[in-house]
Design a binder for these strands. Sequence first.
DNA 1: GTGAAAGCGCTAACAC
DNA 2: GTGTTAGCGCTTTCAC
Lengths: 346, 346
Amino acid sequence: LCKRLHKLKKVTIHGIAKTLNITPSTVSRALNDNPRISEETRRLVKEAAEKAGYRVNGIASALRSGRTFTIGVIVPTADRSFFSGVVRGIEDIASNASYNVMICQSYDDHQSELDNIAALLRAQVDGILMSYARGTTTFQHLEKLRKQAPLVLFDRVIFQPGISTVRVDDFRGGYQATQHLIEQGCRRIATFTSIHRHLDIYKERLRGYQEALQDYGLPPCPEYIHYNDLTLEGGQAGASFLWGLPEPPDAIFCASDLSALGAMRFLKSRCIPIPQEVALVGFANEPFTSFVEPALSTVNQHPIEMGQAATRLFLEQIQAAPGTFVEKHITLSADLIVRQSSMRKT
Amino acid sequence: LCKRLHKLKKVTIHGIAKTLNITPSTVSRALNDNPRISEETRRLVKEAAEKAGYRVNGIASALRSGRTFTIGVIVPTADRSFFSGVVRGIEDIASNASYNVMICQSYDDHQSELDNIAALLRAQVDGILMSYARGTTTFQHLEKLRKQAPLVLFDRVIFQPGISTVRVDDFRGGYQATQHLIEQGCRRIATFTSIHRHLDIYKERLRGYQEALQDYGLPPCPEYIHYNDLTLEGGQAGASFLWGLPEPPDAIFCASDLSALGAMRFLKSRCIPIPQEVALVGFANEPFTSFVEPALSTVNQHPIEMGQAATRLFLEQIQAAPGTFVEKHITLSADLIVRQSSMRKT
DNA sequence: GTGAAAGCGCTAACAC
DNA sequence: GTGTTAGCGCTTTCAC
């Protein structure tokens, strides 16, 4: 009954070497397309390997060569459209360079982030691409990390020597969104921004909002800046607050799509027509933004390009001379997508 | 300029052994909490390791011990609420058993699935949990795979000796949804099901629908069964087709939330009130189902529990005697969530 | 163009 | 309780 089916044959280069009466070194070279191997031997070896069902033991080769051909990726969560897009971009470039990708999620928790980093280092990944957790407010661990493995930060980045970054131009995103609302005739423009004030991405979106108002000569109104957690509930609460003001806004630039949806709900419950009375713009281009009614204007952050760029930076880093740090900073454009929720003019 | 900062100290058990004037084996044992090590030595070793910033080289230990403490996971896509829930469940149980999780996405493509499997095997994962790609229609590769590593299938499963599975009771899900619609007074109930007819999950949901109709004495109507790709567009097209019939339905059980949303759009565009004229039920409990208006009734597939169960099955398998195959099949209940889109009675 | 030999860092069987 | 020894499977000098 209990036949030892478990311990499979286990084909190694030794075995293949034996069948062909050559040495393991030759087999290894042939399989790795070492130029010093004759066409004939290469063919023979590859044939034999194929027939025997040989599959290189990545662990062994990694131990010996010091390279695992694996990239570690840490994202807050993989089920947000933005981050899953980034991952897609990473996988795209990585697999073309024959790298594997190991995805970890921090769930926006700092301790998880530390655990993930430790796990990836234990696995000896060749580099780490990450967007740090919301719960992360100090950055010594990244300073340490960058000395242990090539590190590229994306979206949520800090600027430190030796760390390359890719981010989107959140400032311009915020600016464009606000400018668009102004151009649609809105004059009392509110904004939702994050209570997690340490995150640059939100600071920048807010700054874009403020600068657009200023450029168009609209007076800033502190009460129109609502700090919330940018969830659906946060957006509802924010709208509820704004409509408790003596003079409610005629537009909201929401630093997240979900909070925009929350605002939309509140407005619908009050039968306030969108965009006629209030125009809305979200941020991130989550899929649901095109499903809701009215379809939500939002800002595209080009996640796939971001993942691709981050991976290319990693590849540049490891191809650089040992000891050299390639430090580059890329800013992608953020593009406004105009949909019904903000179209007051036709 | 080009200081060789790259080649970090590299702390190994050898180094620690030297500082303490003991052997690497002792260090290894101390770090792994081997009971034969004295409290004193253990403390000393751990202190020294901590101070030196030692971190075990997972690759080396994996090569020697034959265990990587890594579980490979293959999902069609990580950005669907259902699959990300499953992954969460997997990570939960896995990390408690000090396993790492390596997530791969097949993007529903068969070749990607094969590539992912190869990559995971190369990485010598201790087991693989997967939901196969929509593009997968033959299963020899799984038959082969299960001989190379413990394999647990979830959601999209096949039944083959030696492969454990976890799925949700799609039949009951379909049955309950349909039954609920009947009880709400609907009599002409249509359904959307997948054009990918080889997938059991959809077959079962359809079967549940059919059996409920039969049990309540409602005549089956072939035209009310609409095969589409279950996307938003598919749902719109499906509804469009149904409302071209001489007698349109008064309810639709949609085998996916997105297709239900498509139907909702169509109905709204025709100003057909939901649920008064037409009741809708979706499937999967995607987050947006609670956002849309009216909120969409749907079926909860308990993704987290599914991931947990799959991981537990994997753990059971590897704790079993070598050569023994633990083959278990778990079916989780699918629970109807009733929301406004199907509430015709109060 | 191929072989011989060493060793990546760790663990585990066997001594004592 | 600790040391000794061997080797996981592979790559990579260094020979010739």
